[in-house]
Design a protein around this nucleic acid. Structure first.
Lengths: 205, 205
DNA sequence: CAAAAAAACAAACGATTGTTTGTCTATGTG
DNA sequence: CACATAGACAAACAATCGTTTGTTTTTTTG
């Protein structure tokens, strides 16, 4: 690293603090239930000061979304890196990381599930793009599964993601861990595909 | 019925129109993304006039929720009435009715999935109560399933409801019908439980 | 240390929010 | 007809919204 390589790293700006606080509010009160003043006050600054860091409230949401997608993507990638197993094992590892990020990670990942594009029409297009970029990972993982020929891979993916993203609405700490929940979800689907494949092709080992 | 039995029936008030328009806005813009003026204008009246029918915006949401729960409950009950089949068949029929109500029915049923209690703190308790009253039906249907002893019925229910309620976020008309989707969802879970039970108890017929 | 850039303050802008109040007009009843 | 009630209008209320502007403070840099 050159001597003048301090292009961006620097010590943390207040910008990062604002992002984190905004994520918390967006998760707990929703995008339209959160005001610029809520965020500014919690960050110990005045409403107008936020506009030095972000040109608009929707741009702030996009920035939070980007960070959320980056974090949950990194968590899933890390889990997959140490998982040389079969296709089902890899999908399970991804689901465990996904759920852990949603329930135990920072609020960033949670935002991309709590806030939907319709909540911020001006940013909707970009939010969808970010979300899709992440979910592509799951499409690849599902595509690698051995499945009966009449099954619909993308439907299995949507079903799984729906079940996973619904968890934050009922999850209570102290019960089953996120990983345990993810494993159960996969188990509920895995045997189904195996059995179905068997019935179709009559090749049970 | 006595001669003066006109306690409530009457011809439809404008109240019903307001409820329907509110449901539409709540579904498309969210609760906090919808203003009293949005609803009033669409109903052809002035903002203040809504307060003759409903004491507050949150009370209006509760009324919409009640109608939504009533309608989707009726749809599921009707489907179950003509379904004397096994436990899995009955659960499938309920899911078909649930999904059809969400995707093809009025906006009322959709609201109870789109708006979450956190969006209206003052009404949260009541919204949760209404939602739970409905989901109890599914708990009963799942409890009737033949499942391996180590399986978690309520987890299966939550997984299924999560998958179903996620559909409105990606559903596009012209593809598979709501009923078809529900059947596929159930198929994905059904064989899983069957196979798992078999492995556990070694009693495959 | 001096100049420049970054970051926050202070104060307000117009617009919109949910809601209230008082008045008016239908409609049906005795 | 007289009258009561239902239902909507008209107008405003204080509060809060996202945002802008000009200035001041803090930090970095040459």
């Amino acid at each position: 690293m050159a001597a003048h390589a301090k292009l961006k790293p620097q010590v943390n700006n207040r910008r990062d603090l604002v992002l984190e606080i905004a994520a918390g509010f967006f998760v707990r009160k929703g995008f339209n239930g959160t005001s610029i003043r809520d965020i500014a006050t919690a960050a110990g600054m005045l409403p107008g000061s936020l506009y030095y860091h972000f040109p608009s409230k929707e741009a702030l949401l996009v920035a939070v979304f980007e960070e959320g997608v980056a974090r949950i993507s990194a968590a899933v990638d890390a889990a997959l890196a140490g998982c040389p197993g079969g296709a089902w094992d890899r999908l399970q590892a991804a689901c465990e990381a996904h759920l852990a990020a949603l329930l135990e990670g920072s609020d960033f990942a949670h935002v991309i599930v709590r806030v939907i594009p319709q909540d911020a029409p001006g940013a909707a297009e970009e939010l969808v793009k970010l979300r899709n970029a992440y979910e592509t990972k799951f499409a690849a993982l599902v595509a690698a599964l051995p499945m009966p020929t009449d099954a619909n891979p993308s439907l299995l993916r949507l079903m799984l993601i729906g079940a996973l993203n619904h968890v934050p609405l009922w999850y209570r700490e102290g019960g089953e861990t996120p990983s345990s929940l993810a494993r159960r979800f996969i188990a509920n689907l895995r045997f189904a595909q195996d059995c179905s494949a068997t019935r179709k092709e009559e090749t049970w080992p």
